[in-house]
Design a protein around this nucleic acid. Structure first.
Lengths: 342, 342
DNA sequence: CTGTTAGCGCATTCAC
DNA sequence: GTGAATGCGCTAACAG
């Protein structure tokens, strides 16, 4: 239509240069007129080449949070199976900075076309990102964002809103004179998870605003064998407790203690994440509700975005996507399994 | 690899016949061995042809429920823009059986490659489906399912669970001696929406089970001008009301009355669907929570399924998909807009 | 029944 | 700078 060959159009589409200004304008005019839309799939077919993606997240035990992220990644690979992608997993120990450092070191020596990072340690992650930036390897964050890095995109949840959302649920149900008992996990590492901290701040800010600040008490849960005892002890010390809450995915630990103490139904436990253990507790009634953050959608979106970046340098870098926060109870649980788009 | 030509493989892949049993087996063996995966996009490219889809749902006013379904449909068309699809909208009046009948009549005379149906009237829908069955035109249900029809798939929400979910939320927050006031809309048509009825049954069953059955009272909301007055009157007659609930998307009507009566904050209103008007009420606090059923995902999935059916007679007919039920309050609202997959 | 050929949108390679 | 040729997975049309 513009009187040029396919080669020239290709050079223009991908800004490869070596095109005269006149022809460029002519072709772009036609492109606009016919509403040209890039076809990522035929492009991939034609390219023939495969891609090598590195996925580095905390080690995903079966049925745990990070396994859902992986599930989303696999759904995306299935969906885009016409594009050859080889995922390569590099899990690290989220409680051990050294493990993270050594894994990230290995990664920075690898050749890869893209990296998906589920970050935990800020310093280590930034170091890795700097190396990737230097090599020009695109990367995407899931679950948490790291300031100062330059990812193609990040897929996270606004944890402050998450905490506020929890606060709203508590406020809606809290009876006169009753209290909320917040269980905090003792972290093995010195630094507590930044996601958990942000949730806590969101919750506290909300409760303060609503004048409920003094109805919340706290207890520490150790990672030791006698956790159950300590939890029960805390529950007994606070007979007015109506809600027990946990800001990470370890709600099932509190649930065990609640079952042990025959307190099921007397105390409403609210936790985070649809892990297998938490789901079991939701079903047996020892957990009243779980807040969830679409881990599968995170994984799915990450792959999808890397593909669109690699095949078609689409849009700007540094997109920050905040995914929905879902509330799951026994009644709507069956419909939350493995749903990305239907 | 099987020593046959592409033509033969194609005949086998699409069960077009005219293939000897021996070659079929040989080819299928190879297909399995190499893990062959059909590529729907290159197939569409090669086919060159476009598709004509008919979409028939209740008329979608801007910002209303059915507009979200349409939004999902458009997102899918965007996603699959390499496949030429022409959507054709045939809205009907969901309060007028005759309008539906006449629209469905028109549709049954059209040529189409697929139909998406948002059903309201059982008899009319069944009549349409029978004609489509006869013509061999595939169709998909969104929002509601019709027994006795043979859709390729349906994308709905389990309304009974929806009602139970609402019941759970009410139970969690209900104070001693307080009541729940259920507002029912007077339907212009004789038959009340089957979705609403199923929700109601789910709610009642749940409350009964939990021994809360007698804490619920009811009031009828007319579709007339004086609705607000009648609503306020009902609220005044029941001074113990803690929760007001509505089982359809008209929660904003009750919210208006609540605002009028200066009852915001005193009465917790729970409704359905993220329509524009409801969202406004969520933001100003007159609606406490909304239950939602992913209308966009319904539309998206419907298109996606029709495509996969047409291009690759994949899987069985008659899939029934139940989508998640979400709870939206002010705090998680911002993250629920237009999210299909990220 | 089966193989050949042409062509869809796209990208690479190479000659001019 | 530019175009022509080739090939990716796929399908339709046709020849045998």
């Amino acid at each position: 239509m513009a009187g040029v060959s396919a080669g020239t159009v290709d050079r223009i589409l991908h800004s490869r240069g070596n095109v005269s200004e006149a022809k460029r304008q002519a072709v772009e005019a036609v492109l606009n007129k016919v509403g040209y839309k890039f076809n990522i799939h035929t492009s991939a077919v034609s390219l023939k080449r495969g891609y090598h993606f590195i996925v580095t997240t905390p080690l995903a035990g079966e049925g745990e949070y990070w396994a859902s992220v992986s599930a989303g990644i696999h759904e995306a690979l299935e969906e885009y199976s016409d594009i050859q992608i080889l995922p390569d997993y590099f899990p690290y120990d989220q409680f051990d900075e050294k493990s993270c450092r050594s894994v990230f070191d290995t990664i920075s020596k690898q050749e890869a076309d893209g990296v998906i990072i589920g970050p935990t340690f800020r310093k280590e992650t930034l170091a890795l990102c700097r190396k990737l930036d230097k090599k020009g390897i695109p990367y995407v964050f899931v679950d948490a964002d790291i300031e100062g890095a330059h990812p193609v995109a990040s897929y996270t949840v606004d944890q402050h809103s998450c905490g506020a959302f929890l606060g709203r649920m508590l406020m809606a149900g809290l009876h006169e004179g009753k209290t909320i008992l917040l269980f905090r996990s003792e972290r093995r590492s010195e630094e507590r998870s930044s996601n958990t901290l942000a949730r806590e701040k969101g919750l506290m800010d909300f409760l303060q605003e609503q004048g409920l600040g003094n109805q919340l008490v706290q207890a520490i849960v150790p990672q030791t064998e006698d956790a159950e005892e300590i939890i029960l002890d805390a529950l007994n010390r606070h007979p007015d407790v109506q809600y027990a809450i946990v800001l990470n995915s370890r709600g099932h630990v509190i649930a065990s203690a609640i079952k042990q103490g025959q307190l099921t139904g007397k105390i409403q436990l609210i936790g985070f994440d649809l892990t297998r253990k938490n789901v079991e507790c939701l079903l047996d009634g020892s957990i009243a509700a779980l807040l969830c953050q679409r881990p599968q959608l995170q994984g799915f979106s990450a792959i999808r975005r890397l593909i669109s970046w690699l095949l078609y340098h689409s849009k700007e870098k540094n997109e920050r996507h905040f995914l929905p926060i879902d509330l799951v109870v026994k009644e709507n649980l069956p419909y939350y399994r493995e749903v990305i788009r239907g």
